[in-house]
Simulated assay, not measured.
Amino acid sequence: MFEITILKDTIPIHPSDFGLPPEQALIAELNKKYANRVLHGVGLCVCTFDITEAGEGKVRYGDGFLWYKVIFRMVVFRPFPSEIILAKVKSVDAEGMRLTLGFFDDVYVPSAYLPAPSAFDISRRQHFWVPPGDEEDPPNLLDVEEDRRMYIEAGDQVRVRVESDEFYDDEPGPPKATEGVTVQAIPRRSPYSIICSMSEQGLGPAAWWPSDDGDEEMDDG
C-alpha cells in the first residue's frame, strides 16, 4: 500500500530558519510542499522518509533564501494491482460505491465489480448480493425474498481488491471558447483515484466472512 520513491528538487530555506540544522529545515520544507499532494504517475505523497543527498546552500540574487539541490526519499501511498485492502463504504449509488481509507476517499467499486449476482435496491439505495442457494434465482433479482439479500450499506467495513488506478491532470481555469462557441467545462476530477472489486470469495463486507482470529478493525482517524 505504501512505497518509497526517490525524488529531486531545489528547496529554499527562509532566513528565519538559518539557525536550524539544514536537514531539519529541508525536511520541514519538503513536507510542507509535498505532503498530501498527488504526483502524476507516482501516487499520494505522505511524508519525507529521509534526505539522501543535499548540495551546498546558495543564495540567489534578490530573495535572501538559501537554495539547496536535494535528492530525497518520499513515502507514497499507491496500492499495487491485486492488493487486498480494508476500507469503509462512504456512499452508494446505482453506479457503484465510493470507499474511504480514512485519509483517502477516492476509492471506487463500480457496480460491474460487485459480487455476482447482485442488484441495486432503489427503495433502500443499497446494493445487495444473493448468495447461492437451493432455489433458482428469478430473472429479476429484485423479486428475491428480502431475507435472502445480503445488503452492503454505508459504513460497512469491506475487503476489496485493487484492480487499477487512474491519474488525471485537469487544467484549471474558465471554460474555453472554440470558434466563438463556449465549451462547457468538465467537472473537475480527483487527481488520483483507485478502482477496486469485491467480486471474489472473501471480499466484500468483513461481516460476511468471519475469521477465526476475530474481525479486523479499521481506525476511524
Rank of each mutant, 00 (worst) to 15 (best):
L101I: 07
L101N: 04
F103C: 03
F104N: 08
F104Q: 09
D105F: 08
V107G: 02
V107D: 03
Y108W: 14
Y108M: 07
Y108N: 05
Y108K: 07
P110T: 13
A112M: 13
A116W: 09
A116V: 09
P117N: 13
S118G: 13
F120Y: 15
F120N: 06
D121R: 05
D121N: 15
I122G: 01
S123R: 14
S123A: 12
R124F: 02
R124V: 00
R125C: 05
R125H: 10
Q126F: 00
Q126Y: 02
F128L: 05
F128M: 04
W129V: 01
W129I: 01
W129Y: 15
V130H: 06
P132C: 08
P132I: 04
P132R: 12
G133I: 05
G133L: 05
E135M: 08
E135A: 11
E135Q: 12
E136S: 12
E136F: 05
E136D: 13
E136N: 11
D137C: 07
D137V: 09
P138C: 10
P138L: 11
P138I: 10
P138F: 11
P139A: 08
L141H: 09
L141K: 09
L142R: 11
L142S: 10
L142K: 08
D143W: 07
D143A: 13
V144N: 04
V144G: 03
E145W: 03
D147A: 06
D147C: 04
R148Y: 12
R148G: 00
R148W: 06
R149S: 02
M150F: 01
Y151N: 02
I152T: 13
E153N: 15
E153F: 06
A154D: 02
G155T: 03
G155D: 06
G155L: 10
G155E: 07
G155K: 12
Q157R: 05
Q157S: 07
Q157C: 05
V158H: 03
R159E: 10
R159K: 14
V160G: 00
V160Y: 00
V160A: 02
V162D: 00
E163D: 11
E163N: 09
S164Y: 04
S164A: 12
S164G: 00
E166N: 06
F167D: 00
F167V: 00
D169T: 02
E171Q: 10
P172E: 04
P172D: 08
P174K: 07
P175K: 06
K176D: 06
A177F: 04
A177N: 07
T178Q: 11
T178I: 11
G180N: 10
G180Q: 10
G180E: 08
V181L: 07
V183R: 14
V183K: 14
V183P: 01
V183Q: 14
